Amino acid sequence: MFARPRRLLVAAAAVAAIATGAVAYPVLDMGGEPAATASASQFFEGMAEVAQDAPATTPAYWKVRVETDNQDDGRRTDTSYFDREGRVWTVDADGTAHEPPAGEAGKVKKWPVGKRWLTWPQLEKLPTDEKTLAALFPKNPNSRFDQVTIMLEDSPAGPDLRAALFRILADTPGMKLVGDVRDSRGRAGVAVEITRKSWYTTGGEDEKVTTWATDRYIVDPDTGLLLETLHKTRSQNTPADRYTWLVVGPADHIG
């Protein structure tokens, strides 16, 4: 558990600004993309400080338990572990662990950074200066945003790297601070959203409909960990795809 010293004051001030209506919106031309609100940038800067203050760990395994709810898979909870070589173990609800098949291609856990897919040890070699790190990600702000949030969701990135990732988000256009919310498990967090153009098919591959999609990310302001992500496409009468991050962190053993 983290205390609430100076590092949370910026984030708290940004959320309070939403509540009082005292939010400044910079007027910037981002090539059709709305600029990130000042309050969203302040919140991410605050989360960078929180992330940087977290203790560094060198675990044998990394554990991820996520509940997903979407129209394709329904609601399900998956628990997995992976080691520093990227081998992935899956664990059933009764605790039965399944070892990764020997030599099976495509079963190594990696994260996208630009055109590369990096393993856990490679993440540790990434620069932690946000400008140097940002140059490794796509120049397109939407693609950069997607890759950064994927890493923040479930990677074993260390405190300095997570701080740099949050600072990249602070400079990414299109973000909006929503404020205090609770996720589907009732956990308190702070929500940020990004709305951007999207498309979906109505039948054949050529029958594409352009619309807008909103992604919401709920962050624990005490730890900087993502609690939940929701992806909603306008013009579709379906619930938002939901990913609730129940456990993301170090583990000494599997099970």
Rank of each mutant, 00 (worst) to 15 (best):
44 F>E: 00
79 T>G: 03
166 F>P: 06
145 F>C: 02
77 T>W: 10
17 A>Y: 10
195 T>P: 00
49 E>L: 12
101 P>A: 00
215 D>R: 15
129 D>G: 09
232 K>H: 03
94 D>Y: 01
43 F>K: 04
104 E>M: 11
21 G>T: 01
14 A>N: 02
125 K>L: 09
57 T>P: 04
87 R>D: 14
84 R>V: 08
136 L>P: 09
231 H>T: 06
188 A>P: 02
156 P>A: 01
101 P>V: 05
152 L>C: 04
141 P>W: 00
89 W>L: 08
24 A>C: 06
153 E>Q: 12
7 R>E: 13
126 L>I: 02
253 H>F: 06
80 S>L: 15
203 G>W: 06
217 Y>M: 12
78 D>V: 15
52 Q>L: 11
48 A>S: 12
32 G>V: 00
72 D>M: 14
33 E>G: 09
214 T>S: 02
243 Y>I: 03
86 G>I: 02
94 D>E: 06
17 A>G: 15
55 P>T: 05
62 W>D: 10
157 A>H: 09
22 A>Q: 15
104 E>V: 11
70 N>C: 11
209 V>Q: 07
84 R>T: 14
51 A>Y: 04
55 P>N: 01
87 R>K: 05
231 H>F: 11
54 A>F: 03
212 W>G: 04
217 Y>C: 02
170 A>G: 03
151 M>W: 01
237 N>P: 07
35 A>R: 03
92 D>E: 14
24 A>M: 10
134 A>R: 11
32 G>P: 00
31 G>L: 05
47 M>V: 01
247 V>F: 06
238 T>K: 09
39 S>M: 07
195 T>K: 11
105 A>R: 13
214 T>E: 02
143 S>C: 07
135 A>S: 10
231 H>N: 05
33 E>C: 10
104 E>H: 07
9 L>Y: 11
145 F>A: 11
204 G>D: 11
224 G>I: 05
56 A>S: 12
23 V>K: 02
